[in-house]
Structures are given as C-alpha cells and as structure tokens.
Amino acid sequence: MGPQFVDFDADGHTDIVTATFEGHAFVVRGSETGWQQPEHILDAAGAPIGIGLYYDMEANEYRHVGQKEGEEVDYSAPHCVSAVAFDWDADGDLDLLLGSKDEGGLYLRLNQGTATAPAFVSTNRRVEAGGQPLAVPGGLTAPRLVDWNADGLTDLVCGSFEGGVYLYLNTGAVGAPAFAAPRALVTPKSTEGSASRPEEGAYVDVLDHDGDGDLDLVVGAYHTVRPTARALSPAEQAELATLDAELEQVEAAYQAFWNDIFEKMGELDEEAGNELLERADSLPEAVELEARLQSLTERVEALRPASKRTSGVWLFLQESPATEDAAPTGADSGR
C-alpha cells in the first residue's frame, strides 16, 4: 500500500494518497473532523486512475486493463499497487506517480488543473532512470519522495518485492526530474546469519529518526525465522519417522477427499455443486482429517521446528562518517 501523508487537495488538511493491489489510486481526505472514507482518484474524464486494474471491486471480477500512452486497452499491462503525489513539473499542483508491481515501473500522471481542482490526464508516461525505463529490481512495492542528498531536488527511494531498497537520485532540475541508475541501500534477501532482518516485500519510509542530520530507513517486510534443530534422542527419532509416515498418509487421504468432492461437483449443476462445496468443510470426514493433520503437524514441529515466514518492521539507522571511523569503545587501537 505505502500510504503517503500529503495535502492532496490543498485545503490545509493532511490527506492520505495510496493504491492497493486492486489497481487504483485512492485519496483519504483529512478534514477538521478527521479522516473521510477513501475515494478513487479520478482523471479529468471521471475515470479512476491506475495503470492496470487488477480487480474491479465494484464489478466483483478480475480485470487486467491498462492505460499506456497511445493505447486505450492493454491486457498485458502491469497493475498499479502504489501511488504518491508529487509536483513533477513544478507548476504548483500535485501530479501522481503510480508504481507497478512486477515490472517495477513508475508512471507519471500529470495534473493539468490546479492544486485545489485537479484535472489529471488520462494516460500514463513511464518514468526513466539512467536513460532506461525505471524498473525496480524485484518489482516495485512503493516509492518514497525525499531529498536524499540535500541538493534541493526530490529523489526516489523505492522498496522491492524481492526485499531490497533502492535509491534513485534526481540529477535533473526543479520541474524536470531526471533519475540516475539505482543504488541499493538495502540488499535483497539475504540468509546470512540468524539476525532478524527484512528479506522480502520491502516497503520503506525515509526520515531522520534519530535527529542526527542524516536519513534513516524504516522497512516493513517479511523475513523467515529459521529455528535451530535440536538433537533428538533415539526414541524421538523413531517417533518422528512414524509421525512423518502417518502424516504422509493423512495428507494423501485429505487430498483424496477433496478430489472426490470436486469430482462430485462436476456431476452436479452449478448451484448444487456450490452448495456441496460450501458444506464440504463441515462433513465429518473433513473435520476428522483436518484434526488429525493439525495434531500430527504440531507434534512433528515440536520435534523438528519448521521455518516460518513472518512480517515485521525494522529501523535502519544511517551511520555518520565520523561514527564509522571512530574506534570502538574499549577497543585496542594498536597505537
């Protein structure tokens, strides 16, 4: 999602601009009484803004319709999962940058209206970096806008679905951004060591969290907890072998149960088939098999802990050059 807090409609209240996996850009307007419910951000023609629509909630069906320059419909288009407002052309109103998931691309939607009455064009323009279409390695989660090197130009810091965080410095000018090739601030997933760190699906925020004058990162992501296996006694090893064999049998029986349900559904009309599917979970055979699976899995994992993928949020404090060069406290400098 990557929410951006910004006064989108120039009314003096902070709003939230974002997009979801659905594929559309949203604004949550702030007001004197608090947040309002989300709205699609519309273009000048009244169409919801996105790149490719992944799922149409109103129609309750999947779509993959895109809008690129010169094309009204592109069924192979990437879909939008992030949006940030930014005055790209320095004309005093906010334009939109839309991030696409798998290709890692960023698209510009210009506002030809005003700050208080936006009129977004109906086509997207691909943003470039280093002379090539910007493509965040591993796919773009969401971009952040920040003047990373304090040169008066807004840079991009982008999270990656493969876990990295990338900096794109703006080497252009105010009103005419031009981004350099990416530089990794956080490397993609690494299994080095056992320390907790983000590995996949990195969403980043950038701020001077410790007030030391440089920018730090806050990264929401997934990581995998890899427990260390303990030594098992001979009796436990034998029990584990028995449990593994039993688990395999129960998993096969569970799969066979569902295969049978799907086969029966194929012999029924749609309504009866759906009714069978809805009550299949509560059939005694399903209940018994699921209980056995759960019980066996819990015991197996008690003997052989499994890796678990879980989400978290991490703070990366930037080290100042002075800190990097300082001798560690209590260390023998050799002099």
Binding site: M1, G2, P3, Q4, F5, T141, A142, N149, L169, R183, L185, V186, A195, S196, R197, P198, G201, Y203, V204, D205, L207, H209, D214, L215, D216, L217, V218, V219, G220, A221, Y222, T310, S311, G312, V313, W314, L315, F316, L317, Q318, E319, P321, E324
Partner: peptide, 29 residues
C-alpha cells in the same frame, strides 16, 4: 557520493512484541 552505511537493523515492537501478522506492512512514521 559516498555509499550510505547503516547499522544492523533493529526490529520495531508493538506492545512488546514484533509486528507479526500484518500482511505486507508498509510503514510511515
């Protein structure tokens, strides 16, 4: 420009526990 360097990441907590169980958390401070 010099390569920025970061200290080892520190996991943030909510009520004493890591922020687990949120699908694709996207943070803003």
């Amino acid at each position: 420009e010099p390569t920025p360097r970061f200290a080892a990441p520190v996991e943030l907590t909510s009520a004493g526990a890591p922020f687990t169980g949120i699908l694709y958390p996207s943070p803003v401070l």
